[in-house]
Amino acid sequence: MNLTERRKAATQLEIALAAAALFAERGAHATTAEAIADRAEISLRTFYRYFRIKQDSVAPLLAFGAQRWQNLLAAVPYEVPLPDALAQAAEEAMTEEGEVAAESFEWTRGLLRAAEDDPALRTVWASVNQESERQLAPLLAERTGAHAGDLEIRLTAAAATAAIRVALETWATGDPEADREAAAELAVSSMRTLTAPFRH
């Protein structure tokens, strides 16, 4: 990205962080675009320059998490069987050390809880997952020597994305005391179950 694009992406992420914190604290209905703009220290006009509605503002943060998982998958050696590589990357993404990683999971938990009662947030979450699935297919194709449009590759991408999504949703809306290791266990179990038919 050029400098302008990097600045735009940084601003979007700052807004997303502010929005995620507010959604987690107050819920979707009690969070306004004005409150998000205030938390992000920008004008309301600037907010609407980047996002159409308040729910859209969390998309960059959710997409960042999906990209991090895919980056970890890309780093797994190619000799590792595909389902094992997918499970390994998911576990590493969810147990990553550091304050930022821990905070991002708490924001995700809050967002997914808030999404239960907010159709627009659920739409954003679904859209992020759909885009993640689309981006995953070329990675899987590269690992297997197949074509990204092949049915098996598309099915594997769909299964892997669904495994992460369902695991996170189950963790976020379940026991509030469950930690990230519990989320990782759910993700690995779901990943192995859904991607086992695609072992190479």
Rank of each mutant, 00 (worst) to 15 (best):
Arg7Cys: 07
Glu185Asn: 08
Glu106Met: 11
Leu22Glu: 01
Gln55Glu: 15
Arg143Pro: 01
Ala93Gln: 07
Arg68Thr: 14
Leu72Pro: 00
Ala178Lys: 02
Leu17Thr: 06
Leu151Asn: 04
Ala162Asn: 05
Thr46Met: 09
Ala167Thr: 05
Ile153Asn: 00
Ala59Val: 11
Asn129Glu: 09
Arg45Asp: 13
Ala184His: 04
Ser127Ala: 14
Asp38Met: 11
Ala9Thr: 13
Asp56Gln: 11
Glu97Pro: 06
Arg180Asn: 04
Arg39Val: 06
Arg26Asn: 10
Ala182Gln: 12
Val76Ser: 00
Trp69Tyr: 14
Arg49Lys: 12
Ala162Glu: 05
Asp117Leu: 12
Phe198Cys: 02
Ala16Leu: 02
Glu133Met: 15
Gly27Thr: 05
Lys8Ile: 10
Ala19Gly: 08
Thr156Glu: 00
Val100His: 13
Pro83Cys: 03
Ile53Met: 08
Ala146Phe: 01
Ala126Met: 10
Glu91Ala: 13
Ala30Ser: 12
Gln135His: 15
Phe198His: 02
Met1Asp: 12
Leu13Pro: 01
Ala114Gln: 05
Ala163Gly: 09
Glu92Thr: 11
Leu44Pro: 13
Asn2Ala: 09
Leu121Gly: 03
Ser104Cys: 06
Val128Phe: 01
Arg26Cys: 09
Gly98Tyr: 12
Gly110Gln: 05
Ala19Lys: 04
Arg180Tyr: 04
Leu139Cys: 00
Asp175Cys: 03
Tyr78Cys: 14
Ala87Leu: 04
Thr170Ala: 10
Gln12Thr: 06
Phe51Ile: 08
Ala187Trp: 03
